[in-house]
Design a binder for these strands. Sequence first.
DNA 1: CAGCAAGCTGACAGCGCTGTCAAATTTTTG
DNA 2: CAAAAATTTGACAGCGCTGTCAGCTTGCTG
Lengths: 344, 344
Amino acid sequence: MNPERPKVTIFDVAEHAGVSIKTVSRVVNNEPNVRENTRERVMLAVRELRYQPNAAARELSGKRSRIIGLIYENAEEFSYLNDVFNGALGICEPAGYSLLLRPLTLPDPEIIDHIRQFATNARVEGIVLPAPMGDLPEVSGLLREMRIPFAAITPREPDPDEINILCNDEAASHALTELLIHQGHDAIGFIKGHPDHGASHKRFAGYRRALKRHGVPYAPRLVRQGYFDFESGRIAAGRMLDLPEPPSAVLASNDDMAAGAIFAARKRGLNIPGELSIAGFDDTRFSSRIWPPLTTVRQPIVQMAETAAALLIDKLNGHSTEAPDSPFECEVVIRESTAPLNPT
Amino acid sequence: MNPERPKVTIFDVAEHAGVSIKTVSRVVNNEPNVRENTRERVMLAVRELRYQPNAAARELSGKRSRIIGLIYENAEEFSYLNDVFNGALGICEPAGYSLLLRPLTLPDPEIIDHIRQFATNARVEGIVLPAPMGDLPEVSGLLREMRIPFAAITPREPDPDEINILCNDEAASHALTELLIHQGHDAIGFIKGHPDHGASHKRFAGYRRALKRHGVPYAPRLVRQGYFDFESGRIAAGRMLDLPEPPSAVLASNDDMAAGAIFAARKRGLNIPGELSIAGFDDTRFSSRIWPPLTTVRQPIVQMAETAAALLIDKLNGHSTEAPDSPFECEVVIRESTAPLNPT
DNA sequence: CAGCAAGCTGACAGCGCTGTCAAATTTTTG
DNA sequence: CAAAAATTTGACAGCGCTGTCAGCTTGCTG
């Protein structure tokens, strides 16, 4: 594409170093069976000539594209994805891999075709599946069938043969609920997340376990279905607040819905956290900037995505994939949207 | 990467259609000089065998990578980028191009090296430069020198030989300021954007022009420097609000800073919009979800990115690049954070 | 119907690299 | 110190496609 730039090929390097092209190839690809002396000579030539292997030739010859795909839901919530992109890119680049994005709008009846086409067309070697893509059985099923390795970032049951990145959603939700209970709340509303997301169930489970543990009765009227978006949070919270005996605290399964809950509370003239405590989940960029700043849970998304990419690349390179033995830790971030219950 | 999938090559298609591989190549690449009859026969074979040209072989042989790079500032503000990604991907995919991301953290003293390496390594044919990348002279200079076509999405002076996607920032800012003036405000604070971004100057210029046009005196004390981030908006607004004669309205050069201004106002117990009107710029996902929902300006980012990618691809394919003759239109979105001045 | 331009089609040589396998070299062994 | 074993190196054949250019068909012209 740039005629001016004189392309340095493997032949130039070989000549410069006084070896055969195959030896250069060995050195460049870190293959064994090259005398240290020779290796250094080649490396020197590589550096002097600023040799950059031609990716297309490599792929054509070696059958390795060094491309990793990232299939994600093209939803509104994007700060989560930002972290995923950054984490994955940060690992792929130094490893010599490219990252190719494939947004998908859910629900997508043709999802199978779309993914199949993406995998074939873009000739990806492996795929990263952030939530909720990793939750969809048809997606993981297809990839298994196509024998394309993938790394799912989602809180599902880990499979020893597959890469699965988890964090302790359940424990974090438990801790957050516990915080509210310790603050004296005993009517704690819960807005569930999208039922197709594994995280939704974990978070709800943590809530229930905390109630049980502390002897707070579970009230189904205080639990509403949400879908992880602002609107559903606003509506769900509104319903609860209009109840004859409204909750004194609301726990939303993510920050978008928590923002919706704040919105609903304000509409009704409620003072937060004076009259209603609200907590969310995810610690989006957003959360510290609304008023009041949101009590929430922070997940180490960047690290999780890094790990996903790193393990995937390891697997592609035939290294033993050592899954991390414990899930990543979430952290409760306490801000001003929650406060001890004010006995009026 | 998938041994099971039998690869269909151009030879298979040629045999199946009873022509030479070259003819298949012609048909697949829409080259002229193929009899209609022959073309159809080949197309049929392509469809029957589900032939997918091998990208690596194409690139190696034809010197065309069909890869477009997207270099962006890896900043907090991400909803803008979401739109840029979506717009660019939406055009690239059907056109048979891949989009490769390259986040950069600004300021970056080694930006030249990073970009040079990206362009070489990833062998991109062209590059999309959303703001503020297109504003940096060293970046556009380097790409010009490397003779890599690029499309800058940024409000700079258009160059007829280069692709430049603009929107009427200045006019939108003018309109927004005018709105506040019509609402009776005559002490309108302005928080400037990052000085390295072209948009900052346009937006400030619109503000000044509107003041002038309506005979509202320009007060330097009501203009503060910001950097497009929440914190700088919070601080700048705080300074203005602590003035002996504070403004009755504040216009921030983007929504993040407007959110900072809201935050600062709330800290001081001010009622918005009762005691202070606040308006922003960009209409991030955020803007309608904070309280009060923000009056702001919406830019057609997706369409701008689509146009950028489309023009770039046209250029790469040697088609006449017809730049759109007028900038994209912004739209003032009026929400509840602004209100007529209440004469107390 | 010969003669010629224009339109089609195909043979073949790479593109730059890696895999295979044989040859050359070094090291180890008896 | 020779023979065997292990290590290192290189020659060469593709990978699947496009560019070049020559050859073959057409359809016209006179």
